[in-house]
Simulated assay, not measured.
Amino acid sequence: GLMGSLLVGTSFAKSLALSLNIPLLDVHHMHGHILAHFIDDGQEKPSYPFLALTISGGHTQIVQVNSSSNLVVLGTTQDDAVGEAFDKSGKILGLGYPAGPQIDRLAKLGNPRKFEFPVPKAPDLNYSFSGFKTAVLYFLQRETKKNEDFIKENLEDICASIQYTLIKILFKKLEKAVIQTGIKQVAIGGGVSANSGIREHLKSMESKGWKTFIPPFEYTTDNAAMIGISGYFKFLNNDFAGLDTTASPRIHM
């Protein structure tokens, strides 16, 4: 499994580091998603400080990035991550896993204002998504009781409305973070940043004076390049790890 391969990889890295006297670098997975913006692929890169919205199956965070080694979490999810909200909603709709890309594809064909879903309340710059999934479940149970073909007949509109609401939840707090910090450079990262609705909405915020940064598709999901660039910055900073470091698949920032 993941843990086994992580630990095998870690022990191999340690023995290699010891035998060749190579420094060991410990890289934070979510830092990788943020620092992927600095991979040299001809794109304009953000300058410090900037805000990063990290969105994936396991994380939803707003991070103030002051330097490659100084990242401050301003807000985080208190329960589900936004990726889980997409996938759990998709599961209720009978879509396969992962459901996010399918909801994105179907949402393009539907009316985002057709059905209204609640925006969960969470303090400060934090997020909450577990209540959203429950609201979708209850809504669909109620409607299919009246018409058993409700999902089939309205799938595109349901997906569009789900995606519209999740984007609204994400950007409500992100806008708040921009106002509170005065930082108008905003980047997204993590698997869910491949979502076309989120990408388009972020771009549209340039009309409010934001400068936005969207990673190429190949750097949105987990990839070796983002871990490489994180290690590169750590190497430049002489930020080496002790050989007692162990891998953890569930670490949060």
Rank of each mutant, 00 (worst) to 15 (best):
G1T: 12
S5Q: 11
G9E: 07
T10K: 13
A13Y: 05
K14N: 06
S15I: 04
L18M: 07
L20H: 15
L20S: 14
N21K: 15
L24S: 03
L25I: 15
V27E: 11
V27P: 09
V27S: 13
H31F: 02
H33K: 04
H33T: 05
H33Q: 01
H33P: 02
A36L: 03
A36M: 03
H37P: 09
D40P: 01
D40R: 00
G42D: 01
Q43S: 06
E44T: 10
P46Q: 08
P46N: 10
S47C: 05
H59D: 13
T60D: 08
T60M: 08
Q61T: 15
I62W: 07
V63S: 11
V63C: 12
Q64T: 10
S69D: 10
L71F: 02
T77M: 09
T77V: 06
D80Q: 05
G83E: 07
A85M: 00
D87F: 04
S89Y: 08
I92G: 13
G94Y: 10
G96F: 11
Y97G: 10
P98M: 14
A99R: 12
G100N: 11
G100Y: 06
D104C: 11
K108C: 14
N111F: 00
P112L: 04
K114Q: 12
F117C: 04
P118N: 08
A122C: 05
P123T: 05
D124Q: 08
N126R: 06
Y127N: 08
Y127F: 15
S128K: 05
F129N: 05
S130K: 15
F132E: 09
L137G: 00
R142P: 02
R142Y: 11
K146P: 01
N147R: 12
D149T: 11
K152Q: 12
N154I: 00
N154L: 04
N154A: 03
L155S: 01
L155W: 06
E156L: 07
D157K: 09
I158Y: 03
L166D: 02
K168W: 00
L170Q: 08
L170F: 10
K172G: 13
K173Y: 07
I179M: 11
Q180Y: 14
Q180N: 14
Q180G: 04
T181E: 03
G182W: 13
I183K: 04
I183E: 05
G190A: 09
S193Q: 15
S193W: 14
N195A: 13
G197I: 12
R199W: 10
E200A: 13
K203L: 12
S207W: 10
K208V: 09
K208L: 12
W210Y: 15
K211L: 08
T212H: 11
I214A: 11
I214P: 09
P215C: 09
E218Y: 14
Y219S: 06
T220V: 15
T221K: 15
T221W: 03
T221Y: 10
M226W: 06
Y232P: 04
N237D: 14
N238H: 09
N238K: 09
F240G: 04
G242V: 00
L243A: 00
D244C: 01
T245H: 13
T245V: 15
T245R: 15
S248H: 08
S248Y: 08
P249M: 02
R250L: 00
H252F: 01
M253G: 03
